[in-house]
Design a protein around this nucleic acid. Structure first.
Lengths: 260, 260
DNA sequence: CGATCATTTGAGCACCTTCAACTTAAGTGG
DNA sequence: CCACTTAAGTTGAAGGTGCTCAAATGATCG
């Protein structure tokens, strides 16, 4: 996703999501459910029957291997759909866990399909959600496989800010709803590495910590974040945007070589 | 995906795919296209209009960042759908590249939706494809983020064998359609690491190379592959299945600890 | 049959992990 | 309100997995 796409989607994003929620509400019987942090919406292996749409709050999807390895594979915000990966097999493919208080709407899949004959917009909404999720998965893989740890954390913050942006919320300051361990799991690194990366970003003034909690992030300028991802992500880049981090880590790829 | 799921899907998998291709052929105008290795089916950013279904051959989907970082995000076999990630934005999200000679059927998305009113099975087919792709993406992330390099390569071979299995092809011996560099990119490692991992697997007799080409893989017993992934994937496991690799790498996690 | 690409293998190093200690935040019950 | 407990987060030191760099071999193709 490039810069232009991100910016243009702010206004249309909020209306798109609001319109979709209204459409669902008006066209289908929805089962509302209020959740609190840690609540389970559904579990991997449970019989699939409903799709779930986020009305408010934040959710994580956790994949689990046979041997017990865990992986946070996606995050879901207002307007996102959950459970799409259960359609084919008839069983949900992940655990869906609430990261904060919020509300989900459960929609029977078969009911949705029936109603879609009368209201094609329902299909468009669902297909759009699924298509966006595929795109997001692919962007995640790109980041996990091609970016060093610091840039991955920076990319995560940008992703979170973008998600808020598309929902009309303030993006220069927000509260992470996840522990360092959860973030690390999602990004394919350990919690200590996340902590160090955040400290380095703060030291370079790419981000700031507001409050003592260390979960409230302030982003002085979105440009600096984007620049940082670019510069650290491409080893051949000269030191311009990430120059502020000299001595901490930004110099390692070019500088240390001469020292050995 | 557990063992039972994999085995039960062999017979039903082949009929499912054959039935689906027949359904598409009989219900919709499909644009056939023959491709050869390296051919581009569509490119990232191109205007979305058609979904593409693999009639034969093998394909990779490549995601590209603004700065030029490349990532193979998925592989597609007979019966798989391509281009689903373009629905929401109206642009394809990846490059679709043929890995071998084959055939793809292009289907107009809007035509599909119209026809689905008469034939709901068309929707079921498309939703199933998308759901399976989401599941596969999540399994990829799990592997990339939680398995060491050797187990990731072993998991890749098992994935390829499973894909062939579901299509009724022989799974104890097959030809990889990708270079080491492509495999490495897909698995989040360098080509040298893939090469070393394959050499170690062969040294432990988990796989064998047939022919001189080093792309024809023989799997003496599928169990050994699965065991290997389990054993190397879980650090706490005692040395039983991967014992054959003593001295190469399998011992590092449990053996070296005592040496320090 | 020379040229190019793919693959293998070795040696050294860097990024990230592991292990550990410490600090801070958030409850809980007296 | 303050000990006490537990979980989350930070930071340092040391070590390992996988990367970089390099060279040699093997495969493929005009």
């Amino acid at each position: 996703m490039n810069e232009a796409t991100r910016n243009s989607s702010r206004v249309s994003g909020t209306t798109r999501i609001a319109d979709m929620l209204r459409l669902l509400q008006d066209s289908l019987p929805v089962q509302r459910r209020v959740v609190r942090a840690g609540d389970v919406v559904y579990r991997l292996g449970q019989s699939f029957g409903c799709l779930h749409v986020v009305s408010s709050g934040f959710f994580k999807m956790v994949n689990l291997s046979d041997e017990g390895r865990e992986q946070v594979v996606s995050l879901h915000f207002k307007g996102d759909w959950m459970g799409l990966d259960g359609i084919a097999s008839g069983q949900y493919g992940c655990d869906a866990i609430a990261l904060d208080t919020g509300e989900v709407w459960a929609i029977r899949y078969d009911t949705l399909i029936e109603a879609a004959v009368r209201k094609p917009a329902l299909l468009t909404a669902m297909h759009g959600a699924m298509s966006r999720e595929l795109r997001r998965d692919h962007d995640s893989m790109l980041a996990v496989c091609t970016l060093p740890a610091d840039a991955r954390v920076a990319g995560f913050l940008r992703y979170w800010a973008d998600a808020l942006d598309q929902r009309g919320l303030r993006t220069d300051q927000f509260t992470l709803r996840m522990t360092r361990a959860e973030i690390g799991n999602y990004l394919g690194m350990k919690q200590e590495t996340v902590s160090r990366a955040l400290s380095r970003l703060a030291r370079g003034d790419v981000i700031r910590f507001t409050e003592q909690t260390r979960r409230d992030i302030h982003i002085p300028q979105a440009e600096a974040l984007a620049d940082f991802i670019r510069d650290v992500g491409t080893p051949s880049a000269p030191d311009e945007g990430a120059a502020a981090l000299q001595g901490t880590r930004g110099a390692s790829r070019s500088g240390i070589a001469a020292a050995t």
